[in-house]
Amino acid sequence: MSNNNKEAPLIEIRNLHFSRSGRMIFDGVDLDIPRGKVTAIMGPSGTGKTTLLRLIGGQLKPASGTINVDRHNVPELGHKELYKLRKRMGMLFQSGALLTDLSVFENVAFPVREHTKLPESMIRSLVLMKLEAVGLRGARDLMPSELSGGMARRVALARAIALDPMMIMYDEPFTGQDPISMGVLVQLIRLLNDALNMTSIVVSHDVKETMAIADYIYVISTGKVIAHGSPEELNKSDSPWVKQFIHGMPDGPVPFHYPAKDYLEDLVSGTG
């Protein structure tokens, strides 16, 4: 690979438009995800952050625009090419998405068994190494129903890195975690990214944790990228949007009230 390719962003999104059930989710989004870095996509709930990951993974198709992942335009890929590309992607779902009828060991072994013909002894070593990386080697025989939320996410993380992907997408990794699990996940995301030389995309609205590990942040709202930069740059930003989001202010450009008719008029009308 030439130097040029190494420096080119792993993911380039240009002029992305996507709507669902008549509602515009993305209205001309442009963003780059650099190689080897932790990039965070932040924004209020319901702005389409998870949708963006699904678009990158090819589970959804945009109305228009390009999503280049390692120089492959995902929306134009056929079934075979898309699945070939996905072997090099990892995704950590909010729920963990572990297969409930398989043990922790078998869950991590699942992608290895599906995509390789490695002997059983090698699969065992590989799975134990991945579980050791997330600190759950001792939990290999547990079933998903016996795991806490944080443990389930760590198992899912071990499964996501089982085939040593080039990139990993984290969908709200910190939501609903106790402080210890949150700390473990924050540390793991950074550690795995650097140790495995991966590219990480973290979708989250947990400002503190995300800013602690991200190299670069995109803030999305109302279908557009409203700000981007390093955590320090965003902290110093003058934009009222960014200020409201970063400092968690209840009112601002994102209104506290859902759109409604005049309050007084609504009260006296007596209907509806």
Binding site: Q59, R86, F93, S95, A97, T100
Partner: peptide, 11 residues
């Protein structure tokens, strides 16, 4: 429980 989506993303 997103198991089917998870499989899709694992190719």
């Amino acid at each position: 429980t997103e198991q089917l989506s998870g499989m899709e993303m694992m190719a």
